[in-house]
């Protein structure tokens, strides 16, 4: 699968969390790459940066933001972007990412990944802002689909068409969160495969997989437990369509020992190898 721009394939990674800082330095576990929550590394002189500087000498690190608020009707936050640019310069990643959402309004932050109404007008507005961000930071940007719990009466197109339009108009990549599609598909009663089949394969640069919770009347994207079989099964299904795509396991709460995450990563690796080169992995 030829991608829309040439970017390296990073393999199988996990999100770097403070609990594991020392493990990475002491044991250098066999993990292909790491993702960091950008905002946690935007404080000069912080403990997090101190560890990051050592860890990035051994691992490829990609910044993944949660507060860009690309879909906000507020102006872009140039102070934030300046800090992000410094972080990107520090770790020199192949790309950087954030979410297709909004989290700030009239200067107040809601500290959540809030969904957008899906209309062509909003998609074009967001795409224009992504172009500005991408140009300012000077690295390829990839945008991630979020889990959602509401649908807006004002939406005129399905989420997969909205995501596609944003990515194409912005000329950016897509970070496809398989778990988020699963959660939203369940909450909004659509078929996850319909979503995946509509997303342009050449733009999908990275996957996220994560755990979620069943709250009875809805699924909640909690990132606090192991990945469910249904999500692994979806991952298995999408591999042929999207080809060689870097994968990352996200865990933000109830963070287990690093070895447990490495085990989960090996599940992903095994699934991928079984699909891509079954003859080799079955011998």
């Amino acid at each position: 699968m030829k991608k829309f721009i040439e970017l390296p394939y990073l393999g199988f990674g996990i999100g770097l969390r403070p609990k594991h800082f020392k493990d990475f330095l002491d044991h250098s576990p066999a993990i292909d790459w790491l993702e960091i929550i950008s905002e946690n590394f935007m404080f000069d002189g912080s403990r997090a940066l101190y560890f990051l500087d050592q860890i990035r000498e051994r691992y490829r690190v990609v910044p993944h933001g949660v507060s860009l608020s690309i879909g906000s009707s507020d102006d872009l936050d140039w102070d934030y972007l300046e800090r992000l640019k410094n972080l990107v310069a520090r770790v020199n990643p192949p790309w950087f990412s954030d979410h297709l959402c909004w989290s700030q309004h009239k200067g107040a932050h809601m500290h959540n990944l809030l969904p957008l109404p899906y209309t062509p007008k909003v998609a074009d507005y967001v795409a224009g802002r992504i172009r500005m961000v991408q140009d300012f930071i000077g690295k390829p940007f990839i945008i991630e689909n979020v889990s959602s719990y509401v649908e807006f009466t004002g939406s005129t197109m399905p989420e997969w068409e909205f995501l596609t339009r944003v990515a194409e108009k912005a000329d950016c990549g897509i970070l496809l969160d398989v778990n988020n599609v699963f959660v939203s598909a369940s909450n909004h009663h659509f078929d996850a495969h319909t979503y995946f089949n509509a997303v342009p394969p050449e733009r999908v640069i990275q996957y996220h997989v994560a755990g979620h919770r069943d709250k009875g009347t809805f699924l909640f994207d909690s990132h606090d437990q192991t990945i469910r079989d249904e999500v692994w099964s979806l991952y298995r299904d999408v591999i042929p369509r999207f080809g060689e795509v870097s994968l990352l396991i996200e865990r933000d709460d109830h963070i287990p020992p690093l070895a447990d995450l490495v085990d989960e990563l090996n599940i992903a690796r095994q699934i991928y190898e079984n699909i891509v080169s079954p003859a080799i992995s079955h011998t």
Binding site: S73, P117, K121, V122, Y125, F152, G154
Partner: peptide, 10 residues
């Protein structure tokens, strides 16, 4: 920003 987006976010 589209006016309807601003209203919804408010």
């Amino acid at each position: 920003a589209p006016a309807e987006l601003r209203a919804l976010q408010t």
